[in-house]
Simulated scan of single mutants.
Amino acid sequence: MIRKIDLTDHHQVLDLLFLQQLSYRVEAELIGFKEIPPLWDSPKTLRESGECFFGYYDEDNKLTGAVSVKQGPKEMTLCRMMVHPDAFRQGIATQLLQYAESLAVPGLMIRVSTGTNNEPAVRLYTKFGYEPGQVMEVAPGITLTVYHKTAPSPLTR
């Protein structure tokens, strides 16, 4: 159900962009900030992001969730997490998070940031052992919190 999204395939990129728009509009409402960068993406900016995208496909092969990661030498960053609003609270984000974590080298730091007031995302990340760290103000009264954890070894996953 989870597979890599081919950013060279125009249809897959458009499906991803549509999903991203729906998902991040909900986050924008939750945190009270309409200027979330993913809302400004285009097929070109997704292709040029340097991120590796993985999609969750339902039984009808419809893209209902996605996660993107960027692997560096010292850490892996979870750049985006999105679920179609019609599929909220079905465990899709959990499956995507677990999948993304399985890609990290054991012992490597994993980082993710989310709107401090995005309670569903905060609950998900803390449930999986992410610790809050730096809080950054991105606009007056709007903050992002960076969460981090060490990638577990395959024996503890």
Rank of each mutant, 00 (worst) to 15 (best):
R3K: 15
K4G: 07
L7K: 07
H10A: 14
H11F: 15
Q12F: 14
Q12I: 15
V13I: 14
L14R: 14
L16N: 00
L17F: 13
F18C: 11
L19S: 01
Q20E: 14
Q21D: 14
Q21G: 15
A28Y: 02
A28K: 09
G32T: 08
K34V: 13
K34W: 08
E35W: 04
E35A: 13
E35F: 13
E35R: 11
L39P: 08
D41R: 08
K44M: 09
L46W: 07
L46F: 04
R47I: 12
R47S: 13
R47E: 09
E48C: 13
S49G: 03
F54I: 01
G55K: 02
N61C: 05
T64R: 15
G65C: 07
A66N: 03
A66P: 13
A66R: 03
A66L: 07
Q71F: 07
G72D: 13
P73W: 06
E75P: 10
M76E: 05
C79A: 09
R80P: 03
M82K: 09
V83Y: 00
V83W: 00
V83I: 11
H84I: 01
H84G: 01
H84L: 07
P85C: 06
D86W: 01
A87Q: 06
A93L: 01
T94Q: 11
Q95I: 02
L96V: 03
L96E: 01
L97P: 02
Q98G: 05
A100E: 07
A100C: 06
S102G: 14
L103F: 05
L103Q: 12
L103C: 07
L108G: 00
M109K: 12
I110Q: 00
R111F: 08
N117C: 02
E119V: 01
A121G: 03
L124H: 03
K127S: 10
E131F: 08
E131P: 00
P132R: 02
G133P: 10
Q134R: 14
M136D: 15
E137F: 03
V138M: 13
A139S: 13
T143S: 05
T145F: 04
T145S: 06
T145D: 06
Y147M: 12
H148M: 10
K149V: 12
A151V: 11
P152V: 06
S153Q: 13
P154Y: 14
P154A: 08
T156Y: 11
